[in-house]
Computed example of a mutant assay.
Amino acid sequence: MKPTPPPSAPPPSRAARGLRRFVADDVQAAAAELDGWQQRYQQLTPGPFRAEVQQAAFGDVHVFREQTSQALLEEGEAMRGYLSLALPHAQCDGGWFHGYAMRGAGLLTAGNGKALAMRTPRELDLLGLTLPLPALQHALALAGGAPVTVAQLPPVRQLRPGVAAELRAALLSVLGTAALETEVFRHRFVESAMRDALLLAAATALTADGDRTHESLPTPTVRRRLVADAYDMVRAAPEAGWSVLALCERLGVSRRTLQYSFNEVTGLAPLDFVRAVRMNGARLALRAGTADSVGAVAARYGFHHLPRFAAQYREFFGELPSQTLARPR
């Protein structure tokens, strides 16, 4: 688990950017390289040491993956106002965190100025993220969970295997997306979408086993109205950063209600529906034969990476956007 700067230090500047990857053969070099963190490492088992770290930042949310080859003692202090979560791979048994054994699908939690102490096993594979508490509280509410404070969270929370696998896949997906060309991350919509995805992934993991019996499912009429309202919003501003979190906030519903309604009414997940609306809007604009280039049309409909847009467009419609633009009117 990686401690953030001490409570007296200002939050690090974390502009959205592509993936950063580094390899170290010394424990102190590995401790010093992770962006925005202060930590102390001690190697506990003999043998050559190797660490590989991947990391990306989206505003005030930081995600990383650390793989190390020897058992370590990691110590530090977490920054006030932030929560750090870490998910070791299920096969990384043998370590401990604040006296709790690391086993199975254990989610490690710490933050808000508290001291950290972790003994890692050999061959650690750890995914982690650090999130500002106010934003996380908001995401928890939209995920249908109750307010959570750091003091209420146990240092190690056992997740169901499926929940842990979903969180791990979400974090790996974000890191994979961050490996795209750097210019993608100059768009504020990409930063916002990645930040929202991380906040929602954390909130979902923290509320996965909570009691949601208080939340009634919407009626068919409410489901249809909710999807219609979402459709109107996306059509009115297709270029906006429509994430699941943004849709929940604008519609005033939980993630569970949003997903249930979209699955029932459209047969699609919310973001698949948003992408379909954007794709069809872009196709109509291209067929209209305006003077706009394919890139200008793509950006107008929220697609800020032209090669990816072209590939998705061809998969969706069976032809490249340039071919649609060149069609006779």
Rank of each mutant, 00 (worst) to 15 (best):
K2I: 11
P7K: 09
S8A: 15
S8W: 13
S13E: 15
G18I: 04
L19W: 03
R21C: 01
V23T: 10
A24S: 09
D25A: 10
Q28P: 04
A31Q: 02
A32S: 11
Q43S: 02
F49N: 01
A51S: 12
V53G: 03
V53F: 00
G59S: 00
F64G: 00
F64N: 04
S69K: 00
Q70I: 03
E75F: 00
M79Q: 15
R80D: 13
R80L: 15
L83K: 02
L87E: 09
P88A: 12
A90H: 07
G94A: 04
W96L: 05
W96Y: 13
G104N: 10
T109G: 07
A110G: 14
N112Q: 14
L116A: 08
R119M: 08
L124G: 06
L127S: 10
G128Y: 12
T130W: 05
L133E: 12
Q137L: 06
Q137H: 06
L142F: 09
G144A: 14
G145Y: 09
Q152I: 06
L153Y: 10
L159E: 02
G162V: 09
A170T: 07
L171I: 07
V174N: 05
A179H: 15
L180W: 13
V184H: 15
F185Q: 00
R188S: 11
R188T: 09
E191D: 02
M194W: 03
A197N: 09
L199F: 08
A201G: 07
T204P: 12
A205S: 10
L206R: 01
T207Y: 00
D211F: 10
R212D: 08
T213K: 13
T213H: 15
E215W: 11
L217S: 13
L226K: 04
A230H: 02
Y231A: 13
G241S: 15
L247E: 00
C248T: 05
R250C: 03
R250W: 09
L251A: 04
L251D: 01
V253W: 03
L258D: 08
Q259P: 03
L268S: 06
A269L: 08
L271P: 05
V274H: 12
A276W: 10
G281D: 01
R283D: 08
R283P: 00
L284C: 07
L286P: 02
G289E: 04
T290K: 13
A291L: 14
G295N: 14
H304G: 06
L306I: 13
P307S: 07
F309Y: 04
L325W: 11
P328W: 05
